[in-house]
Design a binder for these strands. Sequence first.
DNA 1: TCTGGGGTCCTAGGACCC
DNA 2: TCTGGGGTCCTAGGACCC
Length: 439
Amino acid sequence: MRTQASVMHLDLDAFFAAVEQRDKPSLRGKPVVVGGVGGRGVVATASYEARVHGVRSAMSTREARSRCPHAAFLSGRFHAYREASHAVMSLLRSVSPLVEPLSLDEAFVDLQRAGLPDLEVATVTAFAEELRGRVTEVTRGLTASVGLGTSKFIAKVASDLDKPDGLVVVAPGTEQALLRPMSVTVIPGVGPATTERLRRAGIHTVAELEAVSLDELVRLVGRAHGTGLWSLARAQDDRPVVAEREAKSVSVEGTYDTDLTDRRLMEGLLTRQAGEVAARLRKHGMSGRTITIKVRLHDFTTLSRSSTLVSPTDSAATVARTARALLADLDTSGGVRLLGVGVSGLADWVQEDLFGETEEDEEELPAVEVPHHSRRTWSPGMDVVHAEMGRGWVWGSGRGVVTVRFETAETPAGPVRSYAEDDPALTAWVPPPLPDEQD
DNA sequence: TCTGGGGTCCTAGGACCC
DNA sequence: TCTGGGGTCCTAGGACCC
């Protein structure tokens, strides 16, 4: 355990909403809600003006609208958030090499590596106060709440104590006195399910948790969680600040405003998502062996199915084909509200394709040359179309020709037909935009 | 028409191997 | 014709975080 308050936690206040208010002066001082604006959207961030009306993160947008009808409801501009986040993280990294981002708006900073003359409370307090000012400068007006303590846990608790735009330093030695009267929910990892289990055992506060034996805690919540809780209840936390963490999975999912029932549509959407996952893998030079689909049914029950390949892939066609095969085993007759595709078991290399079956091969299906009429662009693996044989998806495009593969449950590798891209027999089915495309 | 999206970690059971 | 244990990998589900 550290004996000095050398761990800092920094949290940008109402981050998404604050960026919107910064960039659009007419929103300043007004309630702003950023999140999903569709029928099944939820609130990502509410400005403090909206919180006054009871709007909270993770609340359905529908409920937020009824609580605060006059708020501005925005779907979010993630490039602007990323830019502001990058400015803050760069600033933090200029101050200490040990910066651990938790999300776009939060990070831990290890002040043991910040080159301060000492780590006394007065010194780190003055340092953090100055840093908060610089965060506001580099973000052109955003504010941050900062906590300092002898561990990650204490620093995080501290940053929550004086929001927004606050600074709290928990003096070494005072941690347990601070925590004991607090609810067990201040402990990271204690969510609704654990809170309920503890409540049934008569445990509500950290002091009450501290009185429970390790064996009893393990019995209540399991081995890993129990031992973690036992330590945190005593303010024992020696988790280091870790700068670089390797990604372990990449995924894309979407919730649709109305439940899906058409399997061909679901396959088209999975294919499109697989394309996005593969593109992100390639962008980072990664590939993965395990492909997982996620399906949320109309009644919110959530299923997953996964399949592990013999070697890692970053191929859109391979991910898509595997995802569609996994969907085939599921009964979706009641309707599907969410579909997702993920790849895990990541490696930073790609297996040479030993069998010569590459994505390029699949995309270079025979196509008929016709005069070019550039009406729109068709994306292989992304666009779902209707044509005379029913619904299919675009397998290849170029030179004014669109190749469509018609697959059915009975014939997974169904017939392929080529059309001029402005052929009236061909009509696009355009899936709803994904959140990040709504910028 | 309650309940997002992108992640991490843990658990438990079965297969398989030594 | 009885009975192992440990380790690793894989799958499915769940809790949690921001």
